[in-house]
Design a protein around this nucleic acid. Structure first.
Length: 469
RNA sequence: GCCCUCAUCGUCUAUCGGUUAGGACAGGAGAUUCUCAAUCUUCAAAGCGGGGUUCGAUUCCCCGUGGGGGCACCA
């Protein structure tokens, strides 16, 4: 069996979005599954719409997702190979050579300053109502595409088409096919939106005297709300957005794998190595999938929960550093060990690292807001002022070294007064954090330490005595 | 308008002619916990319509309908 060679061929004309990422991912998975080669080719022939900044976005996104390429532009550990150059803007000579081959074979001609690919068959003129002009059609049998995912597809191709524009630039169809031939691509895995181009490509392959590679057209990702496929402008479409929001790339990758593919059983959250082992083209779905940010968020949380402490803290710190808010700055200004303790205390409680700055804000400043609704509710129940006074007295001498020590202390106090832990919890939390949500109160005390806890409680008690805290 | 393509809970999907149509996300209820989450239990939720083929169709075929994509000297 010949070597599998697949390629991902983005054009740096916009941002790198979910759909592109999944196409890249499926190519990468197939290469890794078969032990083949994953090629990154940059389709930057359209000079108007390309930029170096966009190119960098592609590299960054692929790297972040962990989709390393074996051949292509050299970036970090990826790239290299002897089928280059891998940027189409540097392959002008190759295209000219191939166009000449077509001319020599009588399959290309010039008209209106452009070069056209010539279809072989009987010609006739017909008025095209849709385009409102007379066009020359060519009679030839339908082009047959044997697609690895969709089976046999037939498409009619009945007009010559431009392969080099009058300004001298080769068009997409030509460069795509030429590069796939020159780079010895064995399988073309791309979005279904290209299916209608494929007949042109098959004809071109044959025009060059080549057998077309295998095709696999994967279903599209539809936007979450409203009609149509997901595009750059849609909410949640951009990979860099997830990167910025502190999503775990392995969670996004896992989620993306499940959009159009599944292992054949009920498993969803799986290590990438297992997905690589099981992935195959015939297992890919044929129908389009709608993007679901809730499921992505859930997947991210599941991965986040199981992160080792060091990685979680690093992830959190990176996110805080990118977040330019007073709360984030205050957090970073504190002692690294304290920051770490706060983050680890919060790890099991948040759905994403993006929640962390707001969720942990009161740890890093004494100047936190008291939630009025929570305050009214807590102050209305039982005798919170008395409970608070008891706590202040007790905690002055209590052991703060561990969660269990704090817990035992408060439980003992509650038992002594014939009350429950809960009778102290709400008021303590309110006084120390201003809220009714947060990590365990015992962990919160341990991390904040006696001085801070007592200071906040005394301040709250004083305010409550004078009126409203 | 023409061409191609797809069709199971709201969403992602399993089923490859015989199942109480399964799982996950989201939603409801309950349990647990010091709050909030998480977790566990549980409920509700689907074969687009019409014809065939077959002893039997979600599954195979045809026709509708609906969704999606494409019809450039864009990629």
């Amino acid at each position: 069996m010949s070597q599998v060679r697949v390629r991902f061929a983005p054009s740096p004309t916009g941002f790198f979005h979910i759909g592109s990422a999944r196409t890249a991912l499926f190519n990468w998975l197939y290469a890794r599954h078969t032990g083949g080669t994953f090629i990154l080719r940059i389709e930057d022939t359209d000079k108007e719409r390309n930029s170096e900044a966009f190119l960098q976005v592609i590299y960054d996104s692929l790297n972040w997702l962990g989709l390393n390429w074996d051949e292509g532009p050299k970036v970090g550990g990826s790239g290299g190979g002897n089928h280059g150059p891998y940027r189409q803007s540097e392959r002008g000579d190759v295209y000219r050579q191939y166009v000449n081959r077509l001319r020599d074979a009588g399959r290309a001609y010039e008209k209106d300053g452009a070069i056209w690919f010539k279809l072989l068959g009987e010609r006739y003129e017909v008025f095209d109502d849709h385009r409102k002009k007379t066009v020359t059609k060519v009679k030839l049998p339908p082009v047959v595409i044997e697609d690895q995912i969709r089976g046999r597809v037939e498409r009619m191709e009945d007009e010559d088409f431009v392969i080099v524009r009058s300004d001298g630039n080769p068009v997409f169809h030509l460069v795509n096919v030429v590069d796939d031939i020159a780079m010895e691509v064995s399988h073309i895995i791309r979005g279904e939106d290209h299916l209608s181009n494929t007949s042109k490509h098959v004809l071109l392959f044959e025009g060059f005297g080549m057998k077309p590679p295998a095709f696999a057209h994967i279903p599209l990702i539809l936007k979450q709300n409203g009609p149509g496929k997901m595009s750059k402008r849609d909410q949640g479409a951009l990979i860099e957005e997830y990167q910025k929001r502190g999503y775990l790339p392995e969670a996004l990758v896992n989620f993306l794998c499940l959009l159009g593919w599944n292992p054949g059983d009920d498993r969803e959250k799986m290590p990438i190595a297992e997905i690589v082992r099981l992935f195959d083209l015939p297992g890919v779905n044929q129908s389009n999938a709608r993007f679901d940010d809730k499921k992505l968020a859930h997947m991210n949380m599941a991965y986040l929960l199981e992160q080792p402490a060091d990685r979680f803290v690093t992830l959190a710190r990176d996110f805080f550093q990118r977040t330019d808010t007073p709360a984030a700055r205050a957090a970073l200004a504190t002692d690294a060990a304290f920051f770490r303790d706060v983050m680890l205390l919060s790890q099991p409680k948040v759905k994403g690292v993006e929640e962390l700055p707001a969720y942990t804000a009161y740890f890093f400043t004494d100047d936190f807001a008291i939630d009025a609704k929570v305050r009214d509710k807590v102050m209305a129940k039982g005798d919170p002022k008395a409970r608070l006074a008891e706590l202040i007295e007790l905690l002055t001498t209590a052991d703060f070294s561990s969660d269990t020590a704090v817990e035992e202390t408060i439980k003992a106090l509650a038992a002594k007064n014939g009350l429950g832990f809960g009778d102290y919890q709400a008021i303590a939390r309110l006084a120390v954090s201003g809220s009714n949500v947060g990590p365990s109160i015992t962990g919160m005390f341990r991390v904040l330490g006696r001085e801070r806890v007592l200071a906040r409680m005394r301040r709250f008690a004083a305010a409550a005595r004078d009126g409203q805290p």
